[in-house]
Design a protein around this nucleic acid. Sequence first.
DNA 1: GTCGAACTTCGATGTCCGTCGTACGATCGC
DNA 2: GCGATCGTACGACGGACATCGAAGTTCGAC
Lengths: 107, 107
Amino acid sequence: MPAVAQDARLPQPAREEIRIEQVLAALGDPVRLQYVRELAKCADGVACGSIPLPITKSTRTHHLRILREAGVISMRVEGTRRIAHLRRDDLDALYPGLLDGILAAPH
Amino acid sequence: MPAVAQDARLPQPAREEIRIEQVLAALGDPVRLQYVRELAKCADGVACGSIPLPITKSTRTHHLRILREAGVISMRVEGTRRIAHLRRDDLDALYPGLLDGILAAPH
DNA sequence: GTCGAACTTCGATGTCCGTCGTACGATCGC
DNA sequence: GCGATCGTACGACGGACATCGAAGTTCGAC
């Protein structure tokens, strides 16, 4: 086997498929907003499990799926882990200022 | 009675009380987002009932209340009507770029 | 004063969603 | 192979929410 076997990206909407209502609904949940804030810190992506939040694994899977299907984050499979990555370029292109405005909020 | 009897503003959070999660949750609903888009067109405010949407009056009251309590809009009583007004200055000050980013979305 | 228009309030209903536990699957290291 | 770790899938449950209809209130016009 090659050293790097998988570059598998989990299914996600293309940039032109992203809908603003879905994005806002995804960001409307406190838990998911917290994930986005953490992901915004590390532009290179973060292992999903390494973000400490008081929820179980299945709940985390649920929230990350919603963020991914809304087009807010992308996920890459790396061994047994999933690396999450904020789709800042896509969001900035579609809704310039939206992400920065949200991240400017006092947390 | 004086000619202008009421400047009554319905209760709403002060600028520093506005919470980003509530704002995003309020904007996450398609009906409410549509109201915001309409209100953004007329900076001077709009009579609530003059925005045509396929919902009943009580549902409209519900959505407008959520927008108001989240700090997205303000409402002024004028006779039997309520004039809604997008709180653009407050939102822009708190989350610069957020509103413009949202309104830039294709609708 | 009476009528109609504009909103609100209340109760009811159905649906969606956040949460969890358990079971299952995939991958890595030994 | 074996066990441990990481994540997903599924079913269930409780609370929140969007929606409505009907009744009530407030105001303006006639």
